[in-house]
Write a protein that binds this DNA or RNA. Structure first.
Length: 197
DNA sequence: TAGCTGATTGACT
DNA sequence: GTCAATCAGCTAA
């Protein structure tokens, strides 16, 4: 099964966030949290940079995120937002080079019934994973996954199946109040699973 | 210690 | 289109 291919290597993440964000499109996020296999194709990401990026948690949440942001890439950074939702990021860059990529939307490919149960929706619903809080809930991701190694373990990212046969859209990031104008959001053009058209 | 905010979502007008 | 839910961590005092 394609899901069993080896995860992306550490080196994949040891590059600037905006490069990793674009390259993650089409890759597969695989979760075995809670003994259930759920997986999806990444169709939307956003890059967050270091302290110079006013929207990045490296700048506005230095205490909570510093150790992870300044650590080595390839680890998960999970935070809770608005007291009730979780967002999943992949830390990028070498140690001392802060940056991360927010995974904003997935196209569900495995474990749809489990996702549907967790989300309280039908398995055919397009809304299973089409938002950062939604995909975290569908894959069972909580603060327990904060700091997890994305190259091994219960939460990994595997390469895309073939070549990049899709067009990449580039635009401004969603939902933030600072550094709004930066073109750091990437998505697969034409996918019906992106969080916003 | 009190008050405020937010990389969201879902329900409602 | 508007708005409430809900809370850790920040800021002001």
């Amino acid at each position: 099964m394609p899901v069993l291919r080896p995860p992306l290597p550490r080196e994949f993440y040891l590059r600037p966030a905006r490069v990793v964000a674009r390259d993650l499109l089409g890759c597969r996020l695989i979760s075995t949290v809670g003994d259930a296999l759920t997986a999806g194709r990444i169709v939307e990401t956003e890059a967050y940079l270091g302290p110079d990026d006013a929207a990045s948690h490296a700048a506005i949440r230095p205490i909570a995120a510093r150790a992870l942001f300044y650590g080595e890439g390839g680890h998960a950074y999970v935070f809770r937002i608005y007291g009730l939702h979780h967002c999943l990021n992949a830390i990028t860059g070498r140690a001392g080079r802060p940056g991360c990529v927010l995974i904003r939307a997935l196209e569900p490919i495995r474990g749809l019934p489990v996702m549907a149960r967790r989300r309280g929706l039908r398995a055919e619903s397009v809304a299973l994973c089409n938002g950062p809080g939604k995909l975290a809930e569908a894959l069972g991701i909580t603060l327990r996954q904060n700091g997890a190694d994305l190259t091994r373990g219960s939460l990994v990212i595997a390469p895309r199946d073939g070549s990049r046969d899709f067009a990449v859209g580039v635009g401004t990031r969603v939902g933030i109040t600072r550094a709004v104008e930066q073109p750091l959001r990437f998505w697969i053009r034409g996918s019906r699973y992106v969080s916003r058209a």
